[in-house]
Nucleic acid binder design. Structure first.
Lengths: 218, 218
DNA sequence: AGAATATGACTGACTGGTCAGTCATTGTCA
DNA sequence: TGACAATGACTGACCAGTCAGTCATATTCT
């Protein structure tokens, strides 16, 4: 299965994945993609590499051409999934045109949208679930996402305080408070959304009202 | 089974675990205790019942005298662990002597203490981790803990608004915001405490300042 | 009371099935 | 054609769940 036309490659450089390196990269991609689905659905221990392989349209042995073992695949998967998230974080702050509140609100809107429409939220849950058993992953996540994110939040809060938008000076000590509702929303989504749906955006707005004071507009 | 001691009870009652029923109950306890340690440490799928048995000082077969299968043991364990938590919730609200803020602060202090000193926090993490794979557990947890807890919070918030302590009227719609930092603290504890310790109590105080306004005392 | 008998809690070796990881073979590309 | 990629049958370890047998305790009998 998953074989490709034998001689098509010779002249079809423009056709998808003509040479070996490209095809290899594509398969690696497919494996990671499939692994993400499986790990999210079942967790690390309960996921079968046979399932990952067949979902990726690849034989099990192929996985071992790309990854040392199941654990390496899992760790690589988390790393891969985190990169776009960090990019979002990095590309969020720039527009410092409006108020700090608008900046944070726009950022939060992006974050929540990202988390509810893609699998990013499940990745976060996966890290919470498996993190304690994979210290490397927890370390990586702390270094690459948490510490950078908190630093960004701290800077935004400091700016807000300097501009008089935020009254609480202590908030800069605990940037976690700022993103707490977003994390709650992620967890709520995967556990309780069927019991009681939660309007994450609206909740975040109320939360920002606490920090910045009620909006002046009706 | 379930018969009661006919006359043995007459003098051996004071000896520890003298009769069969008592010993059986003790073993059941030991199994749950051991299972809690193992499930918290490894998660559901990776936990071996052989390990649970030997930790409990019992043969593997004995587990099956008390629980239908691994899953039933897991579910029973969560139920057992939740009951004391609910009792805490139930015994928290009563003292409505002081301000709403004092009430909530005292409650939060108890909660955070509970969570950092016992295994309760790990149980919460376990539910987040395994919940999606065990809908029964998620349902149970929602019914017994989340919905009751939120209702309590909502009532407290409404009282706070009525008394003029809380300005934001919308907060009653999202009681989740109130406990969000506490949940963050639980997760932070198990994932990142070694990277950067978090003073949960102080964070919660800052959070309450956002809701109730800065404390009047220095 | 003490012997004889019944009970059922407990044990742990065993089974059947599962799955991570391997490697001899086959297929493909340059 | 020679080098490399991919395959999937296979292996061995592992583990949930079973069950025939043991033995401490309870009950009944004399």
């Amino acid at each position: 299965m998953a074989k490709q036309p034998s001689k098509t490659a010779r002249k079809s450089a423009e056709k998808s994945a003509s040479n070996r390196a490209e095809r290899a990269a594509e398969r690696r991609e497919a494996i990671i993609e499939a692994a993400m689905d499986e790990f999210i659905a079942r967790g690390f221990a309960a996921t079968r590499l046979d399932d990952v392989a067949s979902r990726a349209g690849v034989a099990k042995g192929t996985i071992y051409l790309h990854f040392k073992d199941k654990e390496a695949l899992f760790e690589e998967l988390i790393r891969t999934a985190i990169v776009p998230l960090v990019n979002r974080l990095a590309s969020g702050p720039p527009p410092v045109g409006g108020s700090v509140r608008d900046m944070i609100e726009g950022f939060a809107r992006t974050f929540i949208h990202e988390v509810t429409t893609t699998r990013r939220g499940d990745i976060v849950r996966l890290i919470v679930a498996e993190g304690p058993r994979f210290p490397d992953i927890a370390d990586f996540y702390y270094r690459e996402v948490v510490s950078k994110g908190l630093a960004g939040m701290r800077a935004a809060i400091a700016l807000g305080i300097a501009r008089g938008e935020i009254r609480s000076k202590d908030l800069a000590q605990f940037p976690q408070i700022l993103i707490a509702p977003a994390l709650i929303a992620v967890i709520w989504q995967s556990l309780f959304s069927k019991h009681a749906p939660l309007d994450a955006i609206e909740m975040f707005r109320v939360h920002l009202d606490l920090i910045f004071g009620e909006r002046r507009t009706a």
